[in-house]
């Protein structure tokens, strides 16, 4: 794989930034479901049927997700092996809990993605490419609302988004540092990162609770 520690950092950062872009797009489309069933169906139908999205962007996205997680595991293993004998006591006061536990928050997000793929992506692939059912442009909103009937699922989604928020809180800014950005825009990037890390996950929680209560 990648031998240089800096290139591994850069690869991790770039895949993370790519996933942040995807998250922004995913959130924008999902948020339309709160105020317009029709708009949400139209956008989802476009994303679900457009060949460029389906056969180019979707595989790139899946590769990006897998790459980010695999690289995360590799880095964690390498980092743990750099100190095999641990301290008997170590103060954690010099860094934030989340910056030290990105692997943990990442594993929570990975488990969430497992359920999320099971909920939405697997049925979608089955519908289109296994059962070859006729496309119904009106089905997306109903499918979304149906998934949020279960309070357990809404709770799990919400908890996962809290971890996503924490993961982004460190990861977003860290990605820029990893690719060498440290200039007069650094404070702006930090502010944007915190805003994104709070607004987007909270927005996803809002969407889940909104459809649970109104579905």
């Amino acid at each position: 794989m990648i031998e240089s520690s800096i290139l591994r950092k850069v690869a991790m950062a770039l895949s993370g930034l790519f996933l942040i872009l995807f998250l922004a797009q995913h959130f924008t489309i999902n948020f339309t479901s709160v105020f317009s069933e029709d708009l949400f169906n139209k956008l989802s139908h476009f994303m679900g049927t457009n060949p460029l999205v389906q056969f180019i962007l979707q595989p790139i996205l899946i590769f990006g997700v897998i790459f980010h997680f695999v690289m995360g595991f590799i880095l964690e293993i390498k980092n743990r092996s750099a100190r095999k004998v641990k301290y008997s006591y170590q103060s954690g006061s010099s860094s934030s809990w989340i910056s030290r536990n990105m692997f943990f928050s990442g594993v929570v997000i990975l488990s969430f993605l497992g359920l999320h793929f099971y909920d939405f992506w697997v049925p979608e692939i089955k519908y289109k490419y296994i059962e070859f059912l006729p496309e119904d442009p009106e089905r997306y909103y109903e499918e979304l609302v149906h998934k949020f009937h279960s309070p357990g699922r809404v709770a799990f989604y919400s908890i996962s988004f809290v971890f996503l928020s924490l993961h982004l809180m460190h990861g977003f800014v860290s990605s820029f540092k990893s690719v060498g950005v440290n200039n007069k825009y650094s404070n702006t990037i930090k502010t944007m990162a915190i805003a994104f890390s709070v607004i987007v996950p909270l927005g996803f929680i809002f969407i889940a609770i909104f459809h649970h209560l109104n579905g």
Binding site: S5, N79, S99, M102
Partner: peptide, 17 residues
């Protein structure tokens, strides 16, 4: 950086500690 990697140090994750 090559020598640093060969010595077996871990990767920076920007914790700032």
């Amino acid at each position: 950086v090559k020598q640093m990697d060969e010595e077996g140090f871990g990767n920076c994750t920007n914790t700032g500690a």
